[in-house]
């Protein structure tokens, strides 16, 4: 799954479209990492395939607090019902991108 997502981005690279796209995703991922670090009080490694709850050892409460941090930094609300489908950092970044478009 993870490699397939990377592959998708790579296709864009060759077509010359990817750099801005990749930069946006990377920026969002970096922001997710920063929010996690601020809530958890320890350094974390976040990539697209990171399973937020399992890999970052985050419980439901901490996850909610991470989401609140992200809502502030991106100035948008992330509805709880949309979060239900999110497992990886890549999916969360995708959701944030989607919600930004709506605003």
């Amino acid at each position: 799954m993870v490699s397939r997502q990377r592959g998708l981005l790579n296709t864009f690279t060759t077509s010359g479209l990817a750099s801005p796209l990749e930069a946006v995703t990377d920026l969002t991922l970096r922001e997710i990492g920063r929010a996690a670090e601020s809530v958890l009080g320890r350094s974390v490694e976040v990539s697209e395939g990171t399973d937020i709850m399992r890999d970052l050892e985050v419980d439901s409460l901490a996850l909610m607090n991470i989401v609140m941090e992200l809502e502030d930094s991106f100035d948008l609300s992330i509805p709880l019902d949309r979060l239900a489908d999110v497992q990886t950092a890549g999916q969360l970044a995708g959701l944030i991108k989607d919600l930004k478009k709506r605003n």
């Binding site: 609140m68 609300s77 509805p79 709880l80 019902d81 949309r82």
Partner: peptide, 11 residues
């Protein structure tokens, strides 16, 4: 309750 209903849920 927020999971039973269909509304968008914001905290």
């Amino acid at each position: 309750a927020s999971r039973l209903g269909m509304a968008e849920v914001i905290r």
